[in-house]
Each structure stands twice: as C-alpha cells, then as structure tokens.
C-alpha cells in the first residue's frame, strides 16, 4: 500500500515537469517562453541512410535507420524468448511480469487458432505467434520517445533552413525571428537514428511474401498435388459446358488473389504504421503540447491490432489452404 502511491506521486511530478518544459519551449506566453514553433519533420518513405558507405560493399545496401529498428525489434523478441523460456524452465505454473503478458497473448491466439485450424494448429500456430510478436515489437518500438526524432542533421532538398538562434543551432521553418545572416541557402533535415521497421516496405513485403509462400506450403503439405486444382481447375472444363469454363476462370482468379494477398498484407501494415507516424508528426507540429499523447494512445492500439490482424489473416489463409476447396468451388459455381 505504501509503495504504489509513492511511485504515482513521482510520476505525477514528472508529467507536470514535462508539461511546464513543453509550455516553456513551445509557447511565447508572457515573454518567458522560447517560443520555438515545432516544424513539420520531413516525411521520407524509404528508410533513410545513416551512412553513405554500403554494408559489405553490396550495391544499394546502406545502413538505414529501419535496419536499426529491425535490430531493436529482434532484440525485444529475443529478450521475450529468453524471459519466457527461463520462466518456464524455473517450473512455475503461471508466468509473471512481461513473459506472463506474452503468455496470456499467445494463449488467446492459440485459442483462436484452435477454433480455426483444427488439427493443423500445431504447425500453423508458430507462424501466427512469430508474425504477431515480431510485428508487435516493431510497431510498439516506434512509440518509444526519441524514436524518429533524435538523429543527425543532413542536407535535404525538401528540408528547412538551418539557423543560429542565440546559442542554439536549429532547423527553423522561417518567419519573423529568422536570423538572415546565418542562412546559407541550403536546406537540412534530421535523419533519425531509429525508425520502426514496420514503416519500411522491405520488412512488410518480406513478411507478406513469406506468409503467402508458407500458405502454399501448407496447402501442398495437406492436400498434395490436389492443391494445384485450386488454381488450374480443368476437371470440369469439358464435362460441364458453361460452369466448367467458369470454374477454370475462378481458379485463375484464385491464382491472382494469391498475389494480391502479398500486396494487401504488405501495404496494410506499412500504410497503417507509416500513416501513424505521419499523423504523430502532423499533430505534433500543429499542437506542440498535450495533443500528441492522445494519438500515442491511438497508435498503441493500432500497433496491437495490426500485429494481430497480420498474424490472424496469415493463420486463417493457412487454415483455409489446409482444407479442401473442391466442393467450395461447386457451390460458388452454382450460386
């Protein structure tokens, strides 16, 4: 009883101090604040290069901030793995702390998988868990303060001028207080050290491609070569005059839909997370204090939901691939 209120009080003072600091930095009330208007950070879709020398000398393979983000996400997942495995090895019946939360999440996901995949649960569930945990780690690592904000100042053509404001060198959008003397005509932007890997299309495409490939693998494992008839359905082409042709056409459409799944997976996650990041930028530049906190909460939920949705869609498609499709097509053809 005595421990918790103390911590709360401590946190309350931190929040108050942050608010006062924010007000001091970003507003010019009563002439005491610095009145630094936050600029709209540059929005750059690919991962930004941290260095101009390619890794291992491979063409185009530069160290980017999303690569650092990938390392962070991996680190989180590996730490969770260590925590969970050591927690289970210690013989406890119920895990505590973070590994307990992971266990609760995975138990829920296991329940969903069991309800959908049936006897293939044991094979499908690790993919579900991997994708969900990795994407969740990537999404939530983007919410850590300092992410996408602390970095090196680089020259950037769509950036803002770099000016001297008293003792500080800052990127300034320009306006009344611009010291024209120090303006050298070049534009700059901050390249952050860290950016969540789920805002990198390479990551989302890699996940999507692996997921779709594994869906096909599960299809072949469960049905053998009969799985091919899903895409190349010549069984009824000549026996049924019109419906056979329709069945064949549906098979081709299924083949196309497998490729559209890749796009859909990749862009859903990327779009959500990238849009979330842009949203935070925009809100931060419009209302310097308070408002961003609300959108942090929103991003928290979006990150969780997108992670679960990515994993769950993969799981559902895998489960569908393990079940027969022949009779399903018949129904569709006659509907």
């Amino acid at each position: 009883m005595s421990e918790k209120p103390k911590k709360r009080v401590w946190a309350r003072w931190v929040v108050l101090a942050a608010i006062i600091l924010g007000l001091f930095l970003f507003t010019g009330f009563f002439g005491i604040g610095l009145g630094i208007a936050p600029i709209m950070p540059h929005v750059y879709l690919p991962g930004e290069k941290l260095s101009e020398t390619p890794i291992l000398g491979i063409e185009g393979f530069y160290p980017t901030n999303t690569l650092v983000g990938l390392g962070l996400a991996n680190l989180i997942v590996i730490l969770l793995a260590v925590g969970v495995s050591s927690g289970v090895k210690s013989g406890k019946m119920v895990l505590t702390g973070i590994s307990g939360a992971v266990e609760a999440l995975l138990e829920m996901l296991y329940g969903i998988t069991e309800g959908t995949a049936g006897k293939w649960t044991k094979q499908i569930f690790p993919w579900f868990a991997t994708i969900t945990l990795l994407v969740l780690a990537a999404n939530w690592s983007g919410l850590v303060p300092g992410n996408e904000t602390i970095g090196l100042i680089h020259e950037y053509k769509n950036g803002h001028p770099l000016i001297q404001a008293g003792p500080l060198t800052t990127i300034w959008e320009g306006g009344a207080g611009v010291d024209v003397e120090s303006y050298d005509g070049k534009k700059y932007a901050v390249v952050p050290f860290l950016r969540p890997v789920s805002t990198d299309l390479n990551f989302t495409f890699a996940l999507a491609v692996v997921a779709v490939v594994m869906i096909q693998v599960f299809g072949f494992r469960s049905q053998g070569m009969a799985y091919m008839t899903k895409f190349w359905n010549t069984k009824t082409l000549f026996s049924k005059p019109i419906f056979g042709v329709i069945d064949f056409g549906v098979g081709i459409l299924e083949l196309i839909s497998e490729f559209s799944k890749i796009l859909s997976f990749a862009f859903r996650l990327f779009g959500n997370m990238f849009a979330g990041a842009v949203l935070l930028f925009v809100i931060g530049s419009l209302v310097p204090v308070f408002a961003q906190a609300m959108f942090y909460l929103l991003e928290f939920f979006v990150g969780l939901i997108q992670a679960i949705v990515f994993g769950m869609l993969t799981m559902v498609f895998m489960a569908q691939a393990t079940q027969g499709h022949g009779e399903h097509h018949e129904e569709e053809a006659h509907a």
Partner: peptide
C-alpha cells in the same frame, strides 16, 4: 525469428 519464437516462446508456452 521464426526459429527463435518457435523454439523458445511457442514451445515452452505450449508445454506450459
């Protein structure tokens, strides 16, 4: 990551 998760998270937890 799949190997890590399958071996050190899913395995122990499904055992649990």
């Amino acid at each position: 990551m799949y190997v890590v998760v399958a071996k050190w998270i899913v395995g122990p937890i499904s055992g649990l």
